[in-house]
Lab assay of single mutants.
Amino acid sequence: KLPPGWEKRMFRSNGTVYYFNHITNASQFERPSG
Rank of each mutant, 00 (worst) to 15 (best):
K1L: 13
K1H: 13
K1Q: 14
L2T: 03
L2P: 15
L2E: 15
L2F: 05
P3Q: 03
P3V: 02
P3A: 06
P3L: 04
P4S: 09
P4H: 08
P4Y: 14
P4N: 08
P4L: 08
W6V: 04
E7K: 08
K8L: 13
K8M: 15
K8Q: 12
K8Y: 08
R9Y: 07
R9G: 00
M10R: 13
M10I: 15
M10Y: 14
M10F: 14
M10N: 06
F11I: 14
F11E: 09
R12K: 13
R12P: 13
R12S: 13
R12E: 13
R12T: 14
S13F: 12
S13M: 05
N14M: 03
N14H: 09
N14R: 10
N14K: 10
G15Q: 06
G15K: 05
G15F: 13
T16Q: 14
T16W: 12
T16F: 09
V17L: 03
V17Q: 05
V17R: 04
V17G: 04
Y18V: 02
Y18R: 03
Y18I: 06
Y18P: 00
Y18F: 08
Y18W: 06
Y18G: 03
Y19I: 00
Y19F: 07
Y19T: 00
Y19H: 06
F20E: 02
F20K: 01
F20N: 00
N21F: 08
N21K: 00
N21L: 10
N21E: 03
N21Q: 04
N21T: 04
H22Q: 11
H22I: 15
H22N: 13
H22W: 14
H22S: 13
I23P: 03
T24V: 03
T24P: 04
T24Q: 05
T24H: 03
T24D: 07
N25K: 14
N25A: 07
N25M: 13
N25E: 08
N25R: 11
N25S: 10
N25H: 15
A26K: 13
A26T: 13
S27T: 14
S27P: 00
S27D: 02
S27Y: 15
S27W: 15
S27K: 14
Q28M: 06
Q28H: 05
Q28L: 05
F29T: 08
F29G: 02
E30D: 11
E30N: 07
R31Q: 06
R31W: 10
P32E: 01
P32V: 01
P32G: 05
P32Q: 03
P32W: 02
P32Y: 05
S33D: 12
S33V: 13
G34W: 15
G34Q: 10
G34S: 11
G34K: 08
G34Y: 14
G34R: 10
G34I: 12
G34E: 13
